[in-house]
Design a protein around this nucleic acid. Structure first.
Length: 547
RNA sequence: GGCCCCAUCGUCUAGUGGACUAGGACACGGCCCUUUCACGGCCGCGACACGGGUUCGAAUCCCGUUGGGGUCACCA
């Protein structure tokens, strides 16, 4: 029997010294992110993609997108669209891949079947793979037996057919064949990983994995390795759940005579306050945590106001889309994500895209999983929102008002300047673009939506109706109608009444805006205009009177 | 269960043998500012999982224990 010790020596050597595949002297760094078209972009996936992107930009290389659709899906284009959209939204541009093509097109595995077939044949010819005629049940039975005997399972190769005779014999029995890897059964596979260091596994623990199905289609591991070679990928930076798959890929790489890429297995993003992998399907569980629930509810309120669905399948803080729909800033998301598992030093927390590119390195990626923290994400969003010029806030927020049917499309021409004033008055209160709906709806409605709690608390109290009536009367004398003049009038009013400002202003706010919270009171009054303020105060008096 | 990975405040992290009475950020608590809500300012709470080594000296290196996690497909 052939010894595979030699192989692993090669594995180690080629990784440490032959950094570049194909023996070329100066190959630029090339990385890839390989989504399968699932219809959504996972927050953990995008973090891995971000690391790839940053590393590549830093090295002046090319970042590509390859579509792992070997599992024959129907609507690849449809399921891919949200993913590509997410990449563009975040500003993670790919140099080659879907929609833009490139020298190695096509970048869809489903369109590269011929290449896989060629390589399967080479594997077969060299003896690194074999036809296997076992049924799934027969394999399962062997596995069960091994488990019963408490020994690690390795396939007996009972239905392995390496000669034409054996093949025809099995075929006469009516058996179907798959192609399996003939994995080494002694020696050690050594993986040099940029994040995890040296990882060793016994070849004997590896299975004879299937690389080609009975129908001739190939599986991920084979396709992935062939593509990485064809696309001249130099660095495979991927989630750590792929680490256990790496030996079989190393075996394929070496059997096919390719050079090994550099590997870097980044830890997965964990669920809030846990070490478990963040999963879209566990939303219910996360919603039991107050922080996560708040994040979700904030988004859901906006989604509801603009009439988009909130089913967990499409609207979910684990999916990147969520943040765009609610009106988060890509820079905030990216800055938050880059710090999830990577840091530059003990103090730098805000990075422009360029700074990120300039300072990123795989060596500083942490080797333990980092938990997704809604509060921290929120803090980054807060920070970037504060730095955004009002003009840009207006541009972001107008579409939300339109979708909420508060402003028509195209908007009346007075809306632009008004919205600018509102945004300025609201200041740091607007944390996401979608917040504009809650903070400004009353500017665009004939009458505010009166919140019952607010009415209860601030209007339905003894003396409020009379006080509002007297304050309303005073308004006739206010000129010019400015926040400053209004404040001055209010001060005169409380002095005359002998009350504190708190005894009147809350009632005015609720009467005029329908809520207890909002931008500066006097700004609201000014922007609303005298007529509407007077009308709403009357409305407030009515509600207060029915106490 | 086998194999592999991981382990510093609640969370993200700094720390690569002495500058560590362990630093920063978010969160949290208190106070101040304040018409609300935000913002801002000040102060505070808070961690090296455990046990053995190695060393003059260990958060840092080694071993073990415990705990957590990933993965074990004719999915990707």
């Amino acid at each position: 029997m052939r010894s595979y010790h030699g192989r692993c020596a090669i594995a180690t050597l080629s990784q440490e010294f032959a950094v570049l595949p194909h023996g070329s002297q100066r190959m630029t760094v090339r990385t890839r992110f390989a989504p399968s078209p699932t219809g959504y972009l996972h927050i953990g996936g995008v973090r891995t993609a971000l690391f790839n992107w940053l590393f590549t930009r830093r090295q002046g290389g090319q970042f590509l997108l390859r579509i792992d659709d070997t599992d024959a899906q129907r609507n690849v284009e449809e399921a891919l669209a949200p993913i590509l959209h997410g990449f563009r939204w975040l500003g993670l541009h790919w140099d080659e891949g879907p929609e833009i093509g490139g020298p190695h097109a096509p970048y869809y595995q489903s369109q590269r079947l011929k290449r896989y077939q060629e390589e399967v044949e080479r594997l077969l010819k060299s003896g690194a793979a074999y036809y296997d005629y076992a049924t799934a049940d027969e394999i399962a039975a062997e596995r069960l037996e091994a488990e019963r005997e408490k020994r690690p399972f390795v396939y007996s190769r009972r239905y392995m057919a390496e000669s034409a005779d054996e093949q025809s014999r099995f075929e006469k029995e009516g058996r179907k064949r798959v192609v399996r890897l003939k994995m080494p059964r002694e020696g050690t596979c050594v993986i040099q990983d940029h994040i995890r260091g040296r990882v060793e596994v016994q070849w004997a623990r590896e299975q004879d994995h299937v690389v080609q199905r009975a129908d001739g289609t190939c599986l991920y591991h084979l396709a992935s390795v062939v593509d990485d070679f064809d696309f001249e990928i130099t660095h495979v930076i991927r989630a750590e759940e792929h680490l256990p798959n790496t030996p079989r890929q190393v075996f394929i790489v070496q059997s096919l005579g390719y050079g090994l890429p550099q590997y870097a297995h980044v830890p997965y993003v964990a669920a809030p306050a846990s070490k478990e992998k963040l999963s879209k399907r566990k939303l219910d569980k996360y919603l039991k945590m107050p922080d996560f629930r708040k994040l979700n509810e904030h988004g859901a309120a906006i989604a509801q106001a603009i009439g988009i669905g909130t089913s967990a399948d499409t609207f979910n803080p684990v999916i990147v889309d969520f943040y765009e729909q609610v009106g988060y800033l890509p820079d905030a998301i990216v800055n938050y994500l880059v710090l999830l598992g990577w840091s530059l030093d003990d103090k730098t927390e805000f990075f422009s895209r360029q700074q990120m590119v300039d300072s990123f390195s795989l060596e500083r990626v942490n080797s333990s999983p980092a938990a997704f923290d809604p509060k921290k994400l929120w803090a980054f969003q807060d920070h970037y929102m504060k730095g955004l010029p009002p003009k840009q806030k207006v541009a972001m927020m107008l579409p939300f008002l339109q979708r909420a049917k508060l402003v028509s499309s195209p908007p009346p021409c007075e809306v632009g300047p008004l919205l600018m004033r509102i945004v300025e008055a609201a200041g740091d209160r607007l944390k996401t673009a979608g917040d504009i709906i809650q903070y400004a709806d009353f500017f665009f409605l004939d009458l505010p939506r009166y919140e019952s709690d607010a009415v209860e608390k601030r209007l339905k109290a003894p003396g409020v109706a009379e006080r509002l009536t007297r304050f309303r009367a005073l308004l006739a004398t206010v000129a010019p109608w400015t926040a400053a003049a209004l404040e001055e009038a209010m001060n005169r009013f409380i002095a005359a009444e002998g009350i504190a400002i708190g005894d009147i202003i809350h009632a005015v706010r609720v009467a005029v805006t329908g809520k207890t919270v909002g931008p500066g009171m006097f700004d609201c009054l000014e922007l609303l205009g005298k007529e509407r303020v007077e009308g709403r105060l009357e409305e407030g008096v009515k509600m207060a009177g029915t106490a």
